[in-house]
Design a protein around this nucleic acid. Structure first.
Length: 424
RNA sequence: GGAGAAAUGGCAGAGUGGUCUAUUGCGGCAGUCUUGAAAACUGUUGAGGGUCAAACCUCCGGGGGUUCGAAUCCCUCUUUCUCCGCCA
């Protein structure tokens, strides 16, 4: 959520940057917010003065009662009746205005950073790095959903029986490969200075609100109505919420956490080859890296996080590219995002395996995650996160790219974790 | 799941209707003393709104109520603790 003060003082700048994000109705929403904010301040002033008057009278009455002047006290009581009625009206009016402002404010997306390329569609994203060669597969090579059946690694049908489509059952070397990847990703993150946490994978409404999933994206999350909890779509939600309502010290920053969790996404309504096999699932595993950063350092840190994920993809020997998302493709809460995509040789397409974003103060404003700077002033910290990495598409690419007539070769770096060199 | 107790500023802990504009201690910060540090002493020390700055307003777990006036009384929700039951 944008800061009201910032909008008020930088209207033109806000509108200019919202237009890069292709936020429709920007002009009218922002104008309305500023107008309501003026009302808010006027109403509050009126209400506060009224309250000040009532407070002073109550104090006077108290003093009169104490010194035994009962009749005078009773007279003053009559005066307070009118003030009290007014107070109720002022409070109600203020509350209504504040609610209205809030409802508008949560609809406004984050402002894109100056580095965000203009553009509207995924085609306008800027390729900032390409690495590795696309393999030339032997004839007879097949997509991963055939390989997982051939080598008995994943049973999609069994998952349908137990839960439904999008809930695969990993078996044998398929399950062991999952576990190997999780451990490898966590060990890498720890070595890079991240603190490992195991958060809850169900969260309450306040948490989902603070990281921006609510009120907008209810439909994307599984919800348990009896207890009113949400299954997390990403570990970003619980890990970032560790810092909800927290005041940090300036030299605590940056704070680096990582965590492995299953992730749950409803993603209703798509079918076909885009979602076939491991391409899109309702439940999948992901290791997430999250940082709470000093505002002056957050973009430097975003580069480090992106480079960190690049390093892992290189070690896994997967061909990949890095995209800087254009304004139109940027998510609601993000100021700048890098997407990392691996090449899936048998499908002949790029698969997104990581998204690394700087949210600046968009999340921390809702989280109320602040720090006291050297001048003793409160400032909102910046929050960042990235996948490092999401498993299913890594597995898809790994299986497809490394298939040979003899079997699927495991990348060197993973062998200590899998305990086997080939799937055959 | 049943019974009881509790929730106050970074922490500890007073406060049961009217200077609470929240006592005190610890911790933090600044100063004095010191070559420096410790100790001691002195001062200072929550958040949000509002203002050029002030004044002023709100916040004692959340929400609602009683009252001229609520940390204090009432209702309700949440959380924590103790005991019992169940259980990985």
């Amino acid at each position: 959520m944008l800061q009201l003060n910032y909008i008020r003082e930088n209207k033109d700048e806000v509108l200019k940057r919202l237009s890069i994000k292709h936020f429709k109705d920007g002009e009218s929403v922002i104008t309305k917010i500023i107008e309501l904010d003026n009302h808010r301040r006027n109403s509050q002033k009126e209400g506060d003065n009224n309250k000040a008057e009532a407070n002073a009278l109550a104090k006077q009455i108290g003093e009169l009662m104490k010194s035994g002047k009962k009749e005078e006290a009773e007279k003053l009581k009559l005066v307070t009746v009118e003030l009290k009625q007014k107070e109720k009206q002022f409070d109600e009016k203020l509350k209504n205005i504040e609610t209205e402002i809030h409802q508008l404010l949560v609809q406004v997306p984050n402002l894109p950073s100056e580095k965000v390329p203009a553009g509207k569609t995924p085609e306008d994203n800027e390729v900032v790095l390409k690495n590795g060669n696309k393999p030339n597969l032997a004839t007879g090579s097949v997509p991963h959903w055939d390989l997982t059946t051939k080598y008995n690694l994943i049973d999609f049908e069994l998952g349908v029986k137990i839960a439904g489509p999008g809930f695969p059952v990993y078996k044998g070397k398929g399950a062991r490969l999952q576990r190997a990847l999780i451990n490898y990703f966590l060990d890498k993150a720890i070595a890079a200075g991240y603190n490992e946490v195991q958060p809850p994978i169900l969260v309450n409404e306040s948490s989902a609100y603070a990281t921006g999933q609510l009120p907008d994206k209810e439909g994307q999350m599984y919800h348990t109505p009896v207890d009113d909890l949400y299954l997390i779509p990403t570990a970003e939600v619980p890990i970032t919420n560790i810092y909800r309502d927290v005041i940090l010290k300036e030299n605590d920053l940056p704070i680096k956490n990582c965590g492995y969790t299953p992730c749950f996404r409803r993603e209703a309504g798509s079918y076909g080859k885009d979602v076939r096999g491991l391409n899109r699932l309702h439940q999948f595993d992901k290791i997430e890296i999250v940082q709470i950063a000093h505002p002056e350092k957050s973009y430097e840190i975003l580069e480090q996080m992106k480079d960190y994920v690049v390093g892992i993809l290189k070690e896994l020997e997967l061909p990949f590219r890095v995209l800087k998302l254009c304004g139109g493709d940027l998510s609601f809460a993000s100021a700048l995002t890098y997407d990392l995509e691996v090449w899936s040789a048998a499908q002949q397409r790029w698969l997104e395996v990581s998204s690394v974003s700087n949210f600046e103060t968009f999340q921390t404003n809702r989280l109320k995650c602040r720090f006291k700077d050297t001048d003793g002033k409160m400032q909102l910290a910046h929050s960042l996160n990235g996948s490092a990495l999401a498993l299913p598409r890594i597995v898809a690419s790994l299986l497809e790219n490394n298939q040979t007539p003899e079997g699927i070769k495991i990348p060197k770096v993973l062998i200590p974790y899998t305990g086997f060199e080939i799937i055959n």
